[in-house]
Design a protein around this nucleic acid. Sequence first.
RNA 1: GCCCAAGUAGCUCAGGGGUAGAGCGCAUCCUUGGUAAGGAUGAGGUCCCGGGUUCAAAUCCCGGCUUGGGCUCCA
Length: 651
Amino acid sequence: MSELNVKFGDKQQAIPAPATAIDAIKVFDRDVLKKALAAKVNGEEVDLNRELDATDEVLSIEAITSDTRDGLEVLRHSTAHLLAAAVLDLFPGTKLGVGPALMEDPRYGFYYDIIAPRNLTEDDLPVIEKKMKQMAKGDLRYRREVVEKAAILDLFKGREEPLKCELIDEKVDGSATIYHIDGSPFIDFCLGPHVQHTGKLKAFKLLALSGAYWKGDAEREQMQRIYGTAFATQEELDAWVKQREEAEKRDHRKLGRELDLFSIDDDYGQGLILWHPKGGIVRMEMERLLREELEQRGYSFVFTPHIAKRKLWTISGHEENYADGMYAPTSIEDEEYRLKPMNCPFHIGIYKSSPRSYRDLPQRYSEMGTVYRAELSGTLHGLMRVRGFSVDDAHLFVRPDQVQAEVADCLDFAIKVFDTYGFDKVKFELSVRGGAENKGYLGADEDWASAEESLAQALRERNITYERIEGEAAFYGPKIDIKIEDAIGRVWQLGTIQLDFNLPERFELEYTGDDNLKHRPFMIHRALFGSIERFFGVLIEHYAGAFPLWLAPVQVTVLPITDRINDYADSVASELRKSGFRVESNTKSDKIGAKIRDAQMQKIPYMLILGDQELENGQVAVRERKQGDVGAMSLDEFKEKITAERSSRAS
RNA sequence: GCCCAAGUAGCUCAGGGGUAGAGCGCAUCCUUGGUAAGGAUGAGGUCCCGGGUUCAAAUCCCGGCUUGGGCUCCA
């Protein structure tokens, strides 16, 4: 064979053999070579210098360039190897774990898990990064080698790499590939592809050091994980670093303190939120919106206690399946009680309080129910992960024929509410039973089939595009998860609409049908926010603390220019309060610039600047927090404007 | 829970074996200034907690507590 038939884009040509991927690409497009990091041959990702198989068939070749996702992945994965090589060089005897590129996580670009002879600290990162840069300049070659399993095992055994051996043992059947970085002791068991040499790695940065377990298993070896990121150009890396700093400015913990919204005080307990007056206002408004919707959608409002007898949690199955998440029992008069981690059993109690007819269904109970969960201390995070929180919970008890309509209404509800908050990207995921894996699903097959179909049908009926995920359903029923994307593109899993075949069974729920026989109702758990605390945190970051008028703790601040105007300012403020607005009046002796700055830092939507002119004309000079000065108008005109803005809940 | 780091005034942080510091905020006074910081004075601290080393510890060492970054996108 002296020639190969190669296809590149829509062009095809015979080239002399033997040839590498790079030789082939060169024939068609010399320019693309500058950006090429790897190649695809018949869909398989390979190194650029991979020799093409001698074959009569047409080989389809593509270049993987640095400006594509695949290219970035090659770049990051190669950088992870460079990291490991540098660590090995600086800390001989280091054991290697895995070092993948991270393409979904916006915070990082890659990591490498290691066990170094001594625990590394963050002070080591700059040293390692320096070593990496030095190695990058040396244009060290990534060299691929195909080796038999036994030989690879021997190689890594000899290098005392037990974790690598374990991986090889699991993954390899026959032969496998390893990669060297020439000029470094580093060898990795890896599929590739990689860049040709370290000189291709021009923009990378080490970011963080953390703990990780081998295979994520807390029973296995504790390792250290070094996170970093890499881009094709320094400009892209700089832009990314800058954006990261922007995200930090939105941190809800920082804004929560600056805007006096909430606090967490260890004297009261980790993960327990103290809502301050200003946070309280936001919460009241969030709940007001929900309440209006709940009323219109025929929900009823119920209230239930924070603890219940232990026996109840045995019936519900929480004692058996969820004990780790629950606080220890407490007793009174020899009876044990436990704090509730969920509201469901209480709502079931209400359902069971009288016999139900098919005519009574659906029953829709809603409650802002406060629950307590024993989260591990290390997982706590501001408002996002807490130990006590309130769920905008609802439980619907429905007949099988009502499932679809009820779920459809839940979807409408979610869309309406998230739209109000300005989340225009909402994603829906339908989780159903998986084929092969048996998770010990409860409930009859025909119930599952009908429930899954009802959920899917409800989504289709509302023209919602959704992702169907096999095998992600809970053991007790299929569900729809709702995820939203915030103002800076981060995705948050919030609400869920979940069918439950388990609890109706355990609590022996029933209703009398039109056939005068007893039937078991379906139960739907429905929460939009999941946790009010967490959603509050998401909102703070989404709005960067600048709440829209309807949510803002202080909606208007009145700023008199001199204290001659203080009386007029007070009268304007009290006039607005009469119309239900939250107004402050700043009569300190600061200059107007300072008062404006204060208001701006507090992210108050409207400032009314009042001086002699306004007093004389009976007007207010309006300054909006983003647009700045919008001119003078009568108080009535201003009131009309903000009344419309408030009632539309514009975001 | 585990790995790494941090903990100094209400907040943000500097300092560092021998009188505890700054800016912001707060209070009082002066100033009454037209769209992002006017000035002066003052109050405010168990330098996280416990132990050790030392003539002497906020500082060095050990332990604890809390906070922060993380804890499988598998070669």
